[in-house]
């Protein structure tokens, strides 16, 4: 036993000595360093954190930036994690999620020479070194709702949602309902928020599945799943019954939830990756200005359903997209009110 432990220890020491630490000098003005702080959760969450990180990685490939991320474990550590990058001479810090908004502004005041990009962080008053990258989720939801309203045969559609504690989820829901009514005024809507707290609302696929099942039993034939793993649970449940449609959220979920392929007609997307990259690019170009940067939204490709979605529905969606973009129609979602 003693010997075994000694051998273990020797192995550890050997491996340690042979390890080589990579030198990086972000303090130097020639090196562009971009750091990313995630919201509570993992970098490969197939959602915000991952999409934002892919935008940062694009900056590494195309602009030669040195990039690094820190996964946040406790919401009280936001500022600590931002400060780790700031104190190590990083030039740009991306913070992911509306929950980091306050910590980002605090850090921006503390480190005026560093530029901050806050994903999903609406800026009430413009701060010179902070760009709030926001997305009109209501418009994305509106397109999904319009698609659902036109696809339904039963006249009943559903939405299975994460918690209403998170404003973008509410925006998706309000937009979805408005979009469905816009194309199909008499449509029946079954929208359900997860009743649990933030710690479970996005990680409860069982609840998502059973809620989707209830909606199907009530006659819904299109289900919008918007709420992380909870929404994914709804998509996968819908995929189990033939002849139904489901719609994903945030990114093209055809790539992230292959189990949902039998029903996944499209996804209500927020184009976070290009949004993050373009904002980094604007800093490098010197065209960066503080305040809000509105990113693009849209529907994901139809993939296998491309042949079965009628051309007139596609045309109508394109028409609605243009109308939304020019604000010719309103989704009716007003977070202030």
């Amino acid at each position: 036993m003693r010997k075994a432990m000694f051998v273990f220890f020797a192995l550890i020491v050997l491996a340690t000595i042979s390890g080589v630490a990579m030198a990086q000098d972000c303090a130097s003005a020639d090196v562009l360093c971009v750091g990313l702080v995630t919201d509570v959760g993992e970098i490969d969450d197939k959602s915000f954190n991952q999409s934002a990180w892919e935008g940062v990685q694009m900056a590494a490939n195309e602009l030669g930036a040195q990039v690094e991320y820190i996964e946040t474990q406790d919401a009280k550590d936001y500022l600590t994690n931002i400060a780790l990058f700031a104190d190590n001479g990083y030039d740009i810090i991306v913070t992911v999620g509306f929950a980091l908004g306050e910590a980002t502004l605090e850090a921006a005041a503390q480190y005026p020479e560093i530029k901050f990009i806050g994903v999903d962080q609406f800026q009430g008053a413009a701060v010179e070194n902070v760009a709030g990258l926001i997305f009109p989720e209501d418009k994305s939801g509106f397109l999904a709702g319009a698609l659902a309203g036109m696809l339904t045969q039963t006249g009943t559609i559903a939405a299975v949602l994460g918690t209403d504690l998170v404003p973008p989820v509410v925006a998706f829901k309000e937009g979805y309902e408005a979009g469905a009514r816009y194309v199909n005024y008499d449509v029946e809507l079954i929208s359900t928020y997860h009743p649990g707290g933030l710690d479970v609302a996005f990680t409860d696929p069982e609840w998502g599945a059973s809620t989707a099942r209830q909606a199907i039993d009530l006659g819904a034939d299109v289900v919008f799943g918007a709420g992380g793993k909870t929404g994914n649970g709804a998509l996968i449940e819908v995929a189990g019954t033939e002849g139904l449609y489901c719609i994903g959220v945030d990114s093209d979920q055809w790539e992230t939830v292959p189990e949902a392929h039998p029903c996944l007609v499209s996804s209500a997307m927020k184009l976070i990756t290009p949004g993050v990259f373009d904002t980094i690019q604007s800093i490098v170009d010197g065209t960066f200005a503080g305040g809000n940067v509105v990113g693009a939204v849209g529907l994901a490709p139809f993939h296998d359903f491309d042949g079965s979605v009628p051309q007139d529905i596609k045309d109508r969606l394109e028409q609605i997209r243009v109308l939304l973009e020019t604000d010719a129609i309103s989704t009716g979602y007003n977070p202030g009110g």
């Binding site: 509570v40 406790d74 919401a75 009280k76 929950a99 504690l165 707290g197 933030l198 710690d199």
Partner: peptide
């Protein structure tokens, strides 16, 4: 520490 009550901050 937090200065207010906010869901998700005491998980």
């Amino acid at each position: 520490v937090v200065g207010r009550f906010q869901p998700g901050f005491n998980v």
